[in-house]
Structures are given as C-alpha cells and as structure tokens.
Amino acid sequence: MITEPLLTHRDESGCDVPLLVWRLAEPVLAISSAVLGGGIGPCRWLVNATVPMSYDRDDPADHLSEIAAGLGLAGPGVGLLTGVDVADVVTADDDGVRLWATVGLGAPIQAAAPTAEAAPHAGTVNIVAWVPRRLSHGALVNAVATLTEAKTQAIRELGLAATGTATDAVAVLCPPAGPEAEYAGPRSQWGRLLARAAHRAVLSGGAANLAGTASWSERRAGTRTDP
C-alpha cells in the first residue's frame, strides 16, 4: 500500500497555493496521462497541484518539475495540475484498491461534441489510483479506460450531459514486481474494484463541487461563477 498524500502549500506570486504530495518509500510502476511523467514507467512521487484560474504558463511540465524540485523530490514522478482546491480530495477504497480524486466540474464537455468551444469555467478531474497487484502493460491501459468509464458514469448521474472535462488526467500505480494480472476491464477482478472506487469518489466529489465553489481562485476571492 502506498502512503497517503500530504496536503501542503507553496508560495507562488505572493499566494499560498495548496498541493498534494505522495512521497513513495519504494518505486512503483505507473501509467499516467499527466503532463509530467505521462506514459508507463517507474514512479517515486506524485504531485497534484492547485493553480489559479489566471494560470497562463505554456510550460506546465517545467512548472511541475520546479514544484517537485522545491519539495526535494527526485527521480521519476508524476505531476498533475487542477483549478480546484486539492484540499477537497476525495478518497475511496475497495478490497485493496485505494483511490484519490480531485473533482472540478465547472467546465463539462462531451468528448465528441460537434464544435470545440473554449471552456469558460474551472474544471479538471484528476484521479490517482493504487492497485496492490502488478498489472501487465495492457492491463494498465485497460485500467485507465475503466476509470474513465466509471468517471463518466458518475458525471452523468450528477445530471451533466458530459463525458468529463477537457483537462482530466489519471495515474494508476501498482507494484513493480510479482505475478501480473492481465486484465483490468470493468468486469475483471481489479477493474471492477477500480470502477466502483472511481464512481463513488467522482460522484461524491462532483456533488460537492457543483454545490460549492468551483475553483480555488473563486474560493480565495469569495466568489462563484455558476457553471
């Protein structure tokens, strides 16, 4: 089992900005769609960092590398960004699977919408999941798809005609050694658990996000722009 993330803060442009940090005692195997550390490979740490809605850097991977260096993190890792307050992270467990989600649904989209419009509100769903069994590379890819399907199911149940947001990201972690599980689809042993955990976390986090303040920037300013 990997350790729980630490909620901490960083100073950026005079603002005290929150972030979650996972410091792993031993390297794990990871698959991720993150802007930093994407792909399949070893992972020693993860960061899920809040950014203000005025965020306009065109080098997010470099920015996350700077954040990691400032935290003393070394080696390969995964970096995620979101406009929501990561203090609102939702956790879910299911028979050994552990999952953390930060859910921002201020900018829901349909993946295959006929026109692509700029999102006017905060929105990112970041999911980090731990599976206590080594997954084959194919199963890791399958796990990402399963989590995405479960996320979309939860979003639909929240009443949004959407598949997610334009900036959603996911990271799935597992042990780097041991007998491999070949499958992680929604009816496989590990995929079933991932799907149930992701569904609960996104449903819970999404309901809170839609009812409260969408972004960290709005919360800090004491305002809300309804999605």
Results as ranks from 00 to 15, higher is better:
Met1Ala: 14
Met1Pro: 13
Ile2Phe: 06
Ile2Leu: 13
Glu4Asp: 15
Ser13Arg: 15
Gly14Pro: 05
Pro18Phe: 01
Leu19Gln: 01
Leu24Thr: 08
Leu24Ile: 10
Ala25Pro: 03
Leu29Cys: 08
Ser32Asp: 04
Ser33Arg: 06
Ala34Tyr: 07
Gly38Asp: 10
Gly41Ala: 04
Cys43Val: 11
Arg44Ala: 14
Asn48Gln: 06
Ala61Asn: 12
His63Asp: 15
Glu66Met: 13
Ala68Phe: 04
Gly70Ile: 08
Leu71Cys: 15
Leu80Ala: 05
Gly83Gln: 01
Val86Glu: 07
Ala87His: 04
Asp88Gln: 14
Val89Ile: 11
Val90Pro: 00
Ala92Arg: 01
Ala92Ile: 00
Asp93Pro: 05
Ala101Met: 02
Gly106Val: 05
Ala111Met: 14
Thr115Trp: 11
Ala116Ser: 14
Ala116Arg: 15
Glu117Pro: 04
Glu117Leu: 15
Pro120Ile: 09
Pro120Val: 10
Ala122Thr: 01
Gly123Val: 07
Trp130Cys: 02
Val131Asn: 00
Leu135Asp: 03
Ser136Leu: 08
Leu140Asn: 01
Asn142Lys: 09
Ala143Thr: 06
Thr148Tyr: 07
Glu149Pro: 03
Ile155Ser: 05
Arg156Cys: 13
Leu160Phe: 08
Ala161Asn: 15
Val170Leu: 14
Val170Met: 13
Ala171Trp: 00
Ala171Glu: 01
Val172Gly: 02
Val172Cys: 07
Leu173Arg: 01
Cys174Leu: 04
Gly178Ile: 13
Pro179Val: 09
Ser188Gln: 07
Ser188Cys: 09
Ala195Asp: 07
Ala195Ile: 03
Ala197Trp: 00
Val202Gln: 02
Leu203Ser: 08
Ala207Glu: 11
Ala208Asp: 15
Asn209Ile: 06
Leu210Tyr: 01
Gly212Ile: 04
Asp226Trp: 14
Pro227Ala: 15
Pro227Leu: 15
